[in-house]
């Protein structure tokens, strides 16, 4: 008797090959490609943000510019009055734990490297500095704070670097939200494509499915065959997409480095980030399987 184990085919539903498979594979590859690049963007932004946030959190510095007056005594008093006003205001800002003006000695220490010892501050148009401690969970809008400060005293201003960093953080947050939207959209579109091709395919093979049902096949039996096939397409498509995405990510990273080494160097992906990116084909496989399985279950429920 011939050995049926060798040649016997188990593919009751001829899901292999055909234009639909190719179409889905291309769709999934492109989706994973876009997903991987966008995701690497999100992860880099996250890395930058956590660096920036660390440097912006905790404390900030408010500067009181010296009042200009030929009468040094008067100028000094007025500057101090502005400092008082600013202090009063700062203490009432939400999230501010403590606001301490630097003492004369401290200021002297600060300028000592440039101007040497024994400087009388009264004779110098020296800015005064207030050190502000901020609660770690405080959500302070620095741009707003800067505006408020100027309103309180035209001589008061927020540390420039922090302000700039804060704007950058806001921008990065916006970018991140945009990227997340893209990730969700790409996932949704891919699931949609899998949903419709699966449904179409079920219609195409309705005669076979009817026969399988007559033989006593449960919907799960059919759904599993679709899930297996779509999972395979998801994995292969995912690997292809990833294969194209990796060099692209490095290319973008090298471009970014040329622009501004300082900031972007903080945007390096760490090992965890790469792990996530490399697991994308598994993710696309899981999505494909899940979508196909439930599409079949849902569609077949309408049959007898």
């Amino acid at each position: 008797m011939s050995d049926t184990s060798l040649i016997s085919r188990r593919q009751e539903l001829p899901l292999k090959g055909g234009n639909t498979s190719l179409f889905l594979q291309v769709i999934i590859s492109i989706a994973v490609f876009i997903f991987a690049i966008t995701l690497s963007g999100v992860l880099s932004i996250n890395a930058m943000l956590s660096n920036w946030n660390q440097s912006i959190l905790g404390s900030l510095t408010v500067q009181i510019m010296p009042v200009n007056d030929s009468n040094r005594e008067k100028a000094q008093t007025e500057t101090l009055a502005h400092q008082e006003k600013t202090l009063e205001f700062l203490k009432n800002v939400n999230g501010v734990i403590k606001a301490t003006p630097l003492k004369d000695e401290q200021l002297q220490q600060l300028i000592q490297p440039w101007l040497g010892d024994g400087i009388d501050l009264i004779n110098l148009p020296m800015p005064r500095i207030i050190d502000v401690k901020i609660a770690s969970n405080a959500e302070i809008d620095f741009t707003q704070l800067a505006q408020d400060l100027t309103a309180v005293s035209p001589y008061a201003s927020l540390d420039n670097h922090k302000l700039w960093l804060n704007k950058l953080i806001k921008f990065a947050d916006g970018l991140k939200a945009l990227a997340m939207t893209i990730l969700i959209l790409v996932t949704a579109i891919t699931s949609g494509a899998i949903f419709y091709t699966t449904q179409m395919n079920l219609g195409l093979h309705s005669a076979i499915i009817e026969i399988l049902h007559t033989m006593g096949a449960k919907d799960t039996y059919i759904a599993q065959q679709y899930a297996r096939r779509m999972g395979f397409l998801g994995l292969i498509g995912g690997l292809l997409g990833l294969l194209c995405a990796i060099p692209t990510i490095f290319f973008i990273a090298s471009l970014a480095k040329q622009i501004e080494g300082g900031i972007i160097s903080e945007a390096n992906l760490n090992i965890n980030d790469w792990f996530i990116i490399f697991s994308l084909p598994l993710f696309s496989m899981a999505i494909s399987m899940f979508t196909a399985y439930h599409t079949v279950k849902k569609t077949l429920r309408k049959m007898l």
Partner: peptide
């Protein structure tokens, strides 16, 4: 698209 064998085996595999 299946062999005679696979056709007859169908109810058992199901």
């Amino acid at each position: 698209h299946l062999s005679a064998f696979d056709n007859v085996a169908l109810p058992l595999r199901v």
